[in-house]
């Protein structure tokens, strides 16, 4: 395990050698295998993924234009939303229908696009919360401090080590609400590590982060892989993806349209179509303009750092019938 730093990336990428750049390609050692997951909102199919595998010990990026269904897909996999159909396994065990908290206990932990730092708890309390199997979290044992005191001290020690690694140790007694947007992202990632996961799923870890912090965040993501964890992360920005990922999965309109190594996937014509497709050769329909407005507005909200505001779901507008029509129009336009 403790080879020279360059070894990790090379080793991770070696696993992908010789794989075809096709959607649903089989991986040599998948930790997560997804089959035929479908999620519909009214008339709109938000997610329709036929087959996808995530290679163990790698950093896999999930990219796609706004409204491609990435977050919805994340929600299905982690049990935060129920899929209409489909099956997926984690370490060979079926995971569909398993509630969110049990997904986390099995070692698959996620973060959120809009950070969910628990702002009225201190940074240290946030961290302690992540630890699993706490005796003091049982109602009856909670009354007797001597039962859980020892475990609590061990948890605190581990939390402090992590905080130090994420350079949050000076903030340990501050309320999480007083942290900056980037620090919250760091805290959320550190807290996820308290669960001791095998697979870390990061939903837009860079969104709303001050550029100065981006590099350090990227470094932390690489560290996760170097410590033997598997990382799956959602991102819009292709440049960032190219830098750290070993493998890239591209989604558009709910489906996986391409997969491949980061260097070649960017030149894939299907990916370019998905990102630029309808938008640069056809005028915007009214519905598309509306969707874009909603997306822009969601970003604005993020920038303003409104934690409690309900984000607009680009996949799930008020009238499901209309976006379906819009996507049909898109298909026509690109045909």
């Amino acid at each position: 395990m403790h080879a020279e730093p360059i070894g990790f990336k090379a080793k991770a990428q070696a696993a992908f050698a010789g794989l075809e750049s096709e959607p649903g390609v089989r991986k040599p050692d998948p930790i997560l295998v997804v089959d035929k997951v479908v999620r519909r909102f009214g008339g709109l199919t938000a997610v329709d993924v036929d087959h996808v595998e995530i290679q163990r010990g790698s950093i896999t990026a999930l990219i796609g234009p706004n409204g491609a269904g990435k977050t919805t897909f994340f929600n299905q996999l982690t049990g935060f939303d129920t899929a209409d159909a489909g099956e997926w396994t984690f370490n060979g065990a079926r995971l569909n229908g398993v509630p969110a908290h049990k997904v986390a206990r099995r070692g698959m932990v996620r973060t959120f696009q809009l950070t969910k730092a628990l702002s009225k708890l201190t940074v240290l309390e946030n961290m302690r919360l992540g630890a699993q199997g706490q005796k003091g979290e049982n109602f009856f044992r909670a009354f007797v401090q001597s039962i859980w005191r020892g475990q609590e001290d061990a948890i605190t020690e581990r939390a402090e080590q992590l905080l130090e690694r994420f350079k949050l140790d000076k903030k340990r007694d501050d309320f999480a609400g007083s942290l900056s947007g980037g620090q919250r992202k760091l805290l959320e990632m550190a807290r996820a590590l308290m669960v001791e996961p095998e697979l870390v799923m990061l939903d837009e870890p860079m969104a709303g982060v001050n550029p100065a912090l981006t590099q350090s965040l990227l470094g932390h993501v690489k560290d996760l892989r170097d410590q033997g964890m598997t990382v799956l992360f959602v991102e819009h920005d292709m440049d960032m993806v190219r830098d750290i990922s070993d493998w890239v999965i591209v989604m558009a309109q709910g489906a996986v349209i391409a997969e491949g190594p980061p260097d070649t996937i960017m030149s894939d014509s299907r990916v370019i179509d998905a990102y630029l497709g309808a938008h640069h050769d056809a005028p915007l329909s009214q519905e598309e303009a509306e969707l874009q407005l909603q997306a822009a507005e969601a970003e604005l909200e993020e920038e303003a750092g409104i934690e409690h505001a309900e984000p607009t779901e680009p996949n799930e507008p008020a009238e499901p019938a209309e976006p379906a029509a819009a996507s049909e129009e898109k298909k026509e336009a690109s045909a």
Partner: peptide, 26 residues
């Protein structure tokens, strides 16, 4: 006694954001 225990911590965390707590295996 309860509110200064880890049990109380989970409750206070749920007050803040239950999805976050769920994602941490509670």
């Amino acid at each position: 006694l309860l509110m200064k225990s880890p049990w109380g911590r989970v409750l206070k965390a749920i007050r803040e954001d239950e999805d976050a707590v769920r994602s941490l295996g509670k």
